[in-house]
Design a protein around this nucleic acid. Sequence first.
DNA 1: GGTTGCAGGTTGGCGATGTCAACATGACCG
DNA 2: CGGTCATGTTGACATCGCCAACCTGCAACC
Lengths: 195, 195
Amino acid sequence: MTAMARPYHHGDLRAALLAAALHAVEAGGHATLSLRELAQGLGVSHAAPYRHFPNREALLAAVASQGFAQLAEAWLAAWRGAGAAGPAGRLRLAARAYIGFATEHAALFRLMFQGPPPPGAEAAFAGMQATVAAALPGAAEAAVKTRTLTMWSALHGFAWLALEGSIRPAMLRPLPPEAMLDAVLDAALGPPGGG
Amino acid sequence: MTAMARPYHHGDLRAALLAAALHAVEAGGHATLSLRELAQGLGVSHAAPYRHFPNREALLAAVASQGFAQLAEAWLAAWRGAGAAGPAGRLRLAARAYIGFATEHAALFRLMFQGPPPPGAEAAFAGMQATVAAALPGAAEAAVKTRTLTMWSALHGFAWLALEGSIRPAMLRPLPPEAMLDAVLDAALGPPGGG
DNA sequence: GGTTGCAGGTTGGCGATGTCAACATGACCG
DNA sequence: CGGTCATGTTGACATCGCCAACCTGCAACC
């Protein structure tokens, strides 16, 4: 046999399921994801997924967890890559990355913030908090925490509302669409010059 | 007959379905709502709901629409009832009402902001915008709109994150839990003294 | 090296669900 | 009084999540 036709054991079904689930979520949203369809797509029986995830919800939680890792990475990457922009500018670029992630991975983002936060969510918050701390040198930890909270709330609210269409550029007419994002960033981070 | 045992026609099945669906959502979340169960609870056959709603999604959208009406009413009622608090104070109380609605009707709130905004969502935004305008006398309409947008984003983001547990008071320790809400209100509306 | 244990597959089936097609009923209107 | 049509009903289909019972083959052990 040049390539094993169909080995009884898949090899790494768990990882394959996760990847396929992530793909399915990004393609069609988590609501339409079907375990049976997933299994069939991987050439495996309809009950095989239950050997790796206790139920559908657990698989989705694992996908969401992956999403939080990606989101944290996007945030930190933008922040790290913007070292020359100054403390406030770096945060601003990271914030743009947050909104960018939400719009580019809308379905995944929706899944992530639905239901109890999966493992990884708290770490993402901690990562954001670290970058906020860098922008507020000498600030008390309490101040950093509340600042992170208010920033995250503003960014997340805007991302979510824009994602679902609750906020549309048309509602802000005659302002240009980009004005929405700028206004939110100003409000979330303080105006470009401020701290 | 003192009371018709089971008339062939229900009378107002549409309204009954809506009320029952609202109740079911508030009780168990929209994910577990079943049309068949709903129908059975109303003493009607399992396909009867399809005479009034094309599908499950449409029924949920109608429930969400009702929710937006309630939310707008809660906002406006708080604002109206706080006439003596001054422009900024009124907005602050309305904002508290928004958060209050979100936490008291968590499941309904989740449904409302999931999927495309149902009819009524835009009217709710317009209502909020009117109250913001009253707090910014003489401001250009564009300024009012962006202010409403940033305020809503901050409030909504906090409400959602708190609702789902992404933000927990423990994460802000050692700050007291109420500090979270106050900080968000300050950020969303400007500090208590400001405009 | 044969045996055996167990993770990781399979088959089959149950109960429930959303949705549709075909039919029944009865209120209202001419 | 007869017909029409909105509104309910019955029955069925495909699909789904999940479970129980069984099978396979790698690996570890005497």
